[in-house]
Design a protein around this nucleic acid. Sequence first.
DNA 1: GCGACAG
DNA 2: ATCTTGTCGC
Length: 419
Amino acid sequence: MKNNYYKFRQDIKVNFSNVCINDFSTLLKENKPFSGVVESKYGKEYYSKRTYIKGYPYGLNIFINKRQRSLYSLDFTKSNGYALEYENNDRTSFEVYDMGFLLEKITCVEGKIIEKEITEIDIIETVKEFNIKDLLEEISVKYEIEVDDIDSMLGWGLSTYKSVKYDYKFLKKQYWNYYHKTNKEMGLYKNNDFIKYYTEQNKLKDQIIKGDVLPEKIQYVAGVDVAYNEQEQIMVGAIVVLNAETLEVVEQSSHVMDITFPYIPGLFSFREVPAILEAFKKLTMQPDLIICDAQGIAHPKNVGMATHLGIELDIPTIGCAKKRLVGFYEKEKLGSNRADTQELIWNSETVGVALRTQDNIKPMFVSIGHKISLETAIEWVLKVSPKYRLPETTRQADQLVNSILKETTDYDFLDDNKV
DNA sequence: GCGACAG
DNA sequence: ATCTTGTCGC
């Protein structure tokens, strides 16, 4: 087990010199624009500390819960905020500072605000374009954190940019490119290492059966899913079998194992299939059909995860993914009602469809996996998605893996003795 | 050369 | 996939 992942988080040096303020959130809501530092503890669930300027989260955010510690910065550079709480007879005062300025002063008597001063400051300037590599360097120096370690924190720090008017998609894209570039440089993506998997895909491709080879009556439909704990390098694979008529869970099984393969678009099945196969072995019954939360033949080599799994188990499978991997469809022509479809074309072939499983809901991407026709696949996806965008099979499998992952996580960041 | 890229 | 606060609309 790798330890260095958390270590730097415990040693983080942050410029906050604030006095702890508990339950500041009510104050925050009533007195916008609020500027200052909020520190919150919700029982033993989580702990967080974050700077606000004029009601916007800004600067540093530290977050700790049982499963992880994280630190991110909304502008990556400037943050030196703190707040003071002091008592004078029956009066309680809060003084809030950031970057050396008094931003806000609030005086309360018995919990009621009797005085409020807000310093007018300009909205923080935002930088729209920058080189992400330079940025990482800058954070690394400033907070004495290794560039490699910052990487993992940025993963979701970037998503909070939308709250401070950044072009979040642009940043996310930049981050993604940076991430894969470094992985390549680190030798993680050496093509040579993966040639054998690409050739294996060629063999799998020849075995795909594209028509209906189904039992006369499909009694049991299964869903599969995998969840990850990157920190512990563990993954949980699960399979949940449902009654095809009632959609009630009939049987479920799971398997916890080490992560052995990185996520690479195109080689996704080699990451997830092993865990699912192990879970499958523990079943006492055999499902007639499996619906995967991934692509089937709508894949650069026509061997998405659903197809790979179907061939491996020799069971009919459907690929039902939330996002497109390859192929194009005519977006404007796709109707907005349940069961509306548009063909997904890739290399002049129809590899699947964009299918709405509910009215006015983003489409799912359905493709055949193995031993089934596209028409039958669409029928079944609609049948198992009576209420929600995602098939009931996927939802059940998703729930199962996540609950098991929680049970499996045995450390507790909120309890110093356990870490 | 760069962008896109299932979970 | 993974992490979560706050806001808004039906």
